[in-house]
Every structure is written in structure tokens, then in C-alpha cells.
Nucleic acid binder design. Structure first.
Lengths: 347, 347
DNA sequence: CTGAAAGCGCTTACAG
DNA sequence: CTGAAAGCGCTTACAG
């Protein structure tokens, strides 16, 4: 046998039709469950038997060419290494599988990469596109719309666009602040995410709103900006430690930053939680094993991915979608948060 | 405009042909760079202009139906949350893009999931399949072969199969042991990976071979088994600490396990590296920020993904492939390894 | 109840 | 140098 397809010709509808002694169209309609098909039970059995015996599976390309539906949804993320996206992918994949759809995940972390990825996707490779991460521009979205390709922003919004599904980042920030306030903290800093990140802006906004709601001051020099990486979190935590006065707690915008922040505290000899409580957005098994074990806010990321697929599949491409996923969101208390030093002394 | 395709009919070859005033076949041959096409430069320009003006992009389904090539390769991984696979995916994606191929990544962590994923993939969705992780059985591979779908195991081998690309896990283990021996250690334990994992078996084998090569004893009760997670590493490290006598160093089979192992050492009050050196396979930015910063062996994971795609695309499906990727592999020394206590005292 | 036909948009061997 | 034709494997409206 020569290299190449490595096997015999695939079974087609014609093969099944011959075997079952009916027309190809009958097979097709039986398999697609056509409700307008009238067929004798005995014929239907013959068809099903033939399909099973020959191991027939429809040719995807032929079906797509005919129906203009690929049964594939695309998901574009900036970085596979970010566990946040891993969770989103899992939820999206599960939802896609439930609708007999394949999920085609790709990564792009620069505008040029994104464009070449869209080129690669070509015409008619996917029925719709979920766009996570920050690099999507208005121009790209307009291009997709012009191509007739439905899209939906996931975990981000874009000014003037009304096609997105996000988490309640404001509420996550509020939960974190309330946890700290509940422990007695009043001097609470914020290690924020990058300026370009929509989630970072909303967590920052949520932090400020929650501080205000508790009559606390969100000091400007106690809000420093990381970039959602451990390295960035390390640097941003040092900035907070170098500010005039020292907060007793810090709300960190994501888990990777918090790992760097804990490192910065160790390197300056600041004990956590004795001298500084730390709470971060996103819960992962890892958090349990850090030193100290990290208090987190668990976010419904899987649910976010799931809803992305559902909305993309169900809502017409011209309709507005502005959904905030309200899955389980809660503080997971571990060792990194405790009452502030002054309260501890009194105990 | 109604919901649905959300736009006008897509541009087809016929539209371009009309615009350029030539037959459809000419457009097709110009675009595919048919070497047997004789065409006047001026006609070729007209064709190219028409393609550009109309923004023509070939319909993937029609092309696939005709050529039997999808331009898509599949990659099946067990878990998106594992950063090892994130790196493999990145390498594979880059190599696929270079060959104008799309990479369709999917996850399955149980045999039933795998089968339903393959069903979902259907017939003719991908030109070949890369299989990473442990769950692939002989039966699945035979099924793929029967379907005429080329496949390649990535980061694992399977007895009796000769279609795989792997890393040199034995060498990684040897590098780790040599690093420890170079620091003066002779009592070296091994926190292994799960029994089912091919990489774990090879790292274990490499550890034993390297110990032997240095005239050292690999004590059986100093080899404990984790499961490549932080939780498993925590438990397996406790087992080592509970053994008779205590090693001065431990070679950990992967980074997630090492995070748990460091936690176990802290919880027992064993100082690292003063009382116990730790080195683990796989380097990630995270390692720098652990406490202590973790010494690792950096593995060429991206290169592994890249070679997987290259080999799948280039080697005929009937040919044997047994490749060991020889990318950059090196010890990245950080704080978690140091000379053993007895040597330190003498210094 | 079942079959025959058209056509989705390409590519390619062949005709001129 | 360029065009006409066949056919990849489906689905679906229609004919009987």
C-alpha cells in the first residue's frame, strides 16, 4: 500500500444506499431525523443496519458545502499558558460537544497574528467566532461582520459594541474587599491588572466602589499596576511597599500577580498574613500550595466559556448580547488573609 | 437584514472569473500556483486584481471535497490546564501556520471522551491527528488507521507502535541527578510521576541509570509516586520524609508535583535547600517566584509540538517514526538546590 | 412511502 | 494560452 490516505476509499452514502437497497436521499433523511420523512419501520431498520455495518460517517466537507453549516465554532485566545483560558476552553468545549459542534481553538497575541489566523481560517471554516482577550479591534470585528461571520467577545467588552459575555468582575472585587473589611482591615491596597485589560478596569472599578461603600479611602499611591504575570506582580507589590505608609492588606487582580506579590513580600521580610493580608481573583489548585496558602475569589470561568458557545449558537448575529455570567462566585479563605496587626495585638 | 448569515452571498470563483473576464479554472490555477499554467502576464494581473478587489477567499468545504485535503491537523491533549501542553500547543500551532495549516486542538481525559471526540471529528475533518497524553489505546489507533487517518503519538510511546515523537526524559533525569551529585549529594530520592505515564517511566528509568552511573544507590523506599499534580506531590513528599533515614535531595518528576513537595517540606519544618534540595523537570516563569525559587530542568516542549506537526505532515502514514527531540535542555539553577547539610557544615 | 435530480464551489485532466 | 466539463459527497425540494 502506498503512503497517502493509508486505506481504502471511505464509505459514502452511495455505498450505504446500495447495501440497504434504497436511494441515497433516504439514508440522508433517516440520519438527519427529517420529520417529514415517511418510512416503513422495516426500511428504516435496513438503513440503520447498513449504516452500522459499513461504519458510515458523513463526509463533513460535502455536508458543509451543501448546507453552509460547518458544525465548527472558533475560539481565539491570547495565550494557552494562562490557566484562565484553560478553564474557559473547557467550558466552551463541553457546550460545543453538547450541540454536536467541534471547537477550534487558536491563539494570537498580536494584531498581525490575529489577522493571519483569520486568513488561515479562510472562508467557511467556522460558523462563528468567540474572541477572548484584549487584542480585538473594531476593524477586525467589522471585517468579520462583512464576511458574514457571527462573533462574540468573551471576558471583555468593547466600547460601542454590544456583543459580549463577561464575568461580574466588579462583584469579585467587592467580595474581596468585603472579606478584608470583615477581618478588620481599613488600609487596603489594590495590585491592579494591565491598563489594556477590560477585566482589570472592572476589577479596579469594583475595588474603588467597594471601598467607597465601606467609607474607606482608596489611596491612589496604593493602587499599582501589574500585567497579570508573576513578574509584574512582584514589581507592583514592591511599589506598594515603597509607598508612604503601608497598607495592611492588598487585593490582587489575578492569581499569577499574587504569586509574584507573595515573593515580593518575602524578599522584603514582610510577613503574610501577619503584616500583610493578600487576596486574589481566580482560584486554582495551586493556591492551596503557595506559602502562605492563598485566599482567592473563585470565578465561574467554565460557565463563561459555556455561555459563550451557547449565546453564539443561539442568538442571531445581528442581535445585541450583553450578558454577565452569574455562576458560583465566592471567596475561598486560606492562610494569606487574617486580621490586621493592630487587631491581632488586641487579641 | 435578517439574522442568519448576516451578510450578502460570499464571493465565489465565478464572481472573480466574470470580473477578470476569464474562466474559473484560470483563477484557480493562478491562485494555486499551478506550474503547468501558461498565462500572459497581463491576464495574470487582471486575475490578481479581481481577486483583491473582490476580497475573494476560496471556500474551504468545496476545496476539501474536491482535493480530499482539509488543511487541518488535529491535536488531542488530556488537559488544557497543564502548562506542559500549553507549550506543546504553541509549537504545534506555529509549525502548522508555517505550512498554511489550521490546528484543531481538543481535550479528552477519558477513553469515552476520546471516542466521542473522534466521532465528533467525523469523517474528513482533519488530515491527521497528533495524540498527546496517556489515554490512547491500541484499539483507538487501529480505528484511526482503518479510517485512513494518519496519527502520531506526541510525548509518549506505546509498546509495539512505531509512530511517536518524544523528549529525552532519561537525559533530563540524568541532568538533574548530575546537578545534585555535582553539589555533593549522594542520598537522592525520586518523587516520580504516575505509573500510567510514559514520561514518568522514562524519567524514573533515567534517574536509576544516572544513580548507578555515579555509583549511588537508588533506595526503593526513596522513590515515591505522585500523579503530576501539586496535591499528589505533597503526599508523595510526605512519604519520602516518613521513610527510614532521610535523603538530602529529591528529584521531582514535574513542576506541579514540586510545588506540592515544597509545601510538604514547609509543613514538616524541613528547610529547603538547607536540609533538602529539590530539583524538578519543566521550567516555567512561576518557578522563579516559588519559595525557595525552584531549580528546574528546562525541556524543549515547544520544539516537541513543532516536530509533531512536521513529522505528521511529512512522513507517510505507513512509515515508522521514532524521534527523540534534541532541543535545548538544561538545568536552570535557582535557590532550591545547594550542597547537602554535612558539606555545608564543613564550609 | 421512495426515487431522481439539481446544485453547493471548487480543481484538474483534457480539448482546442 | 484559455475554456468547457466532470465530479468530489452530500441535502433537499419535488415528482411520483
Amino acid at each position: 500500500m502506498t503512503a497517502g490516505t493509508g486505506g481504502a476509499r471511505r464509505t459514502t452514502l452511495a455505498d450505504v444506499a446500495t447495501r440497504a437497497g434504497v436511494d441515497r436521499s433516504v439514508i440522508s433523511r433517516v440520519l438527519s431525523g427529517d420529520p417529514r420523512l415517511l418510512i416503513r419501520e422495516e426500511t428504516r431498520q435496513r438503513v440503520l443496519d447498513a449504516v452500522r455495518d459499513l461504519g458510515y460517517r458523513p463526509n463533513v466537507a460535502a455536508r458543509t458545502l451543501r448546507t453552509r453549516r460547518t458544525g465548527t465554532l472558533g475560539l481565539l485566545i491570547p495565550d494557552y499558558a494562562n490557566p484562565v483560558y484553560a478553564e474557559i476552553i473547557k467550558g466552551a468545549e463541553a457546550a460545543a460537544a453538547e450541540r454536536d459542534c467541534v471547537l477550534l481553538t487558536g491563539s494570537a497575541n498580536a494584531a498581525t497574528e490575529l489577522n493571519s489566523y483569520l486568513d488561515l481560517l479562510g472562508q467557511g471554516r467556522v460558523d462563528g467566532l468567540l474572541l477572548a482577550g484584549e487584542l480585538t479591534s473594531r476593524a477586525v470585528l467589522d471585517g468579520l461582520t462583512a464576511d458574514g461571520l457571527p462573533w462574540l467577545l468573551v471576558n471583555r467588552t468593547l466600547r460601542g459594541e454590544a456583543r459580549h459575555v463577561v464575568l461580574d468582575d466588579e462583584r469579585a472585587a467587592a467580595l474581596a474587599v468585603e472579606h478584608l473589611v470583615g477581618l478588620g482591615h481599613t488600609e487596603i491596597a489594590h495590585l491592579a491588572g494591565p491598563n489594556g485589560a477590560d477585566t482589570a478596569r472592572r476589577r479596579n472599578r469594583g475595588y474603588r466602589a467597594a471601598m467607597r461603600a465601606h467609607g474607606l479611602t482608596a489611596r491612589l499611591d496604593w493602587t499599582t499596576r501589574g500585567d497579570y504575570t508573576a513578574d509584574g506582580g512582584y514589581r507592583a507589590m514592591l511599589e506598594i511597599l515603597d509607598a508612604r505608609g503601608r497598607p495592611t492588606a492588598v487585593f490582587v487582580a489575578n492569581l499569577a500577580s499574587a504569586i509574584g506579590a507573595l515573593h515580593a513580600l518575602r524578599s522584603r521580610g514582610v510577613a503574610a498574613p501577619a503584616q500583610m493580608s493578600v487576596i486574589a481573583v481566580h482560584d486554582l489548585p495551586l493556591a492551596e500550595h503557595l506559602s502562605p496558602a492563598l485566599t482567592t475569589v473563585r470565578m465561574p470561568l467554565r460557565e463563561l466559556g459555556r455561555r459563550g458557545v451557547e449565546l453564539l449558537a443561539e442568538v442571531g448575529p445581528e442581535e445585541a448580547v450583553r450578558e454577565v455570567v452569574t455562576g458560583p462566585m465566592q471567596v475561598v479563605p486560606r492562610e494569606s488573609t487574617a486580621p490586621p496587626p493592630d487587631l491581632q495585638e488586641r487579641m
